[in-house]
Design a protein around this nucleic acid. Sequence first.
DNA 1: GGCATTATTAACTTTTTAGTTAAACTTTCT
DNA 2: AGAAAGTTTAACTAAAAAGTTAATAATGCC
Lengths: 205, 205
Amino acid sequence: MAEALELSTTEQKILEAAKKVFIQKGLDGARLDEIANEAGINKALLHYYFKSKEKLFEKIFDEMIGKLLPDFSAIIESQNPIEEKIEFFVHKYIDFVSENPQLPLFMVTEINRNPQRMKDLLGHTQNFIILQRFAFQMITEMQVGRIKSFNPLHLMLNIMSLCIFPIISKPVIQAILQLNEADLNIILQQRKEEVSRFIREALRP
Amino acid sequence: MAEALELSTTEQKILEAAKKVFIQKGLDGARLDEIANEAGINKALLHYYFKSKEKLFEKIFDEMIGKLLPDFSAIIESQNPIEEKIEFFVHKYIDFVSENPQLPLFMVTEINRNPQRMKDLLGHTQNFIILQRFAFQMITEMQVGRIKSFNPLHLMLNIMSLCIFPIISKPVIQAILQLNEADLNIILQQRKEEVSRFIREALRP
DNA sequence: GGCATTATTAACTTTTTAGTTAAACTTTCT
DNA sequence: AGAAAGTTTAACTAAAAAGTTAATAATGCC
């Protein structure tokens, strides 16, 4: 019996549909009928493959949490000077959240609504260790005076904030500035350079 | 007939309860029974005062949207140098979101789920104009060389991001860093100074 | 006091949505 | 071919939540 070795097409279709609907509407707002429609199958199949709405959601959530922080090991491990690393990180990160614009808000909302879920899941991901190493590198470079000294925790919060928050609040910005989708996307692309420069200037010794 | 001139106690109790539950659980997650319980009244009274869940929600939402940006006119209008204004703004803003920690995520989530709602509501608030004036001041100070030149839109997005995002992602940070509520709050208070300094250094000519 | 208006409730109906079942269809194995 | 296991569906039930109603209690008015 080779069960579970290979995902059936139906199972994948369900997961994709569920991902789409859950991310768009959240756990509470999502409807199983909508997921079934989206996947082009009967609702009963959802229960056949995944016992319940909750279980299906957890599957999606667990899979997503690994993607919250993409794999930046290559950047971190490289021997480039820290300013370049940060610049590269910012570019890559803004690209990443631009390609997955709904991911941050989804994760933040659902973790907020059920913090325990995330606590239970910690350790399943190595991303924290990578961030820790990054922080350690920062301290080293601060000590040799290549960049100005900041609390590394806050510095990393700053970098993350600058990259993620405008994506999360896109609809708010859009409404306030009365911009169309295309114009706003241009602004968000500009940010790669603006944010890089902002951080660079702040860190310049 | 003096109707609607003075809010009845019951109406206020309902609004307060609804605010609490809606902010905590969102439109989809909130239950009318829970709101009624919280307000200490019968569920039918909700319909007596506000026709439907949707209508009640809109009332709350409309009231909240004005609070998204508190009134900073005093700071903006003062004659202090721009660095001091920004520093004061950051302190006040972090205080504000710390006191209303659930507000930003609530607004962002619901605006994201129904962008039209916010677009319909624009103009009801004067906050945008204040921000515009702030941006204009920045440009002036950049021209006379008191602060380094940045795109003012991005600069304001940066300031907002640094103040708001860590509050929004509090549960995520808490889970990752394995901190208790008290310790995390200390870190968020530290941010007032860290963020001020970060921006100050970035802007220093 | 008693009548009219407003406020409040318990119990009910309706609607929505998650979850189940039994039967039909497919695939696979011998 | 045909039995067994796996897959899929239409139609159903159960549960939860929104919304309604008709009767009761409180309030203000003459």
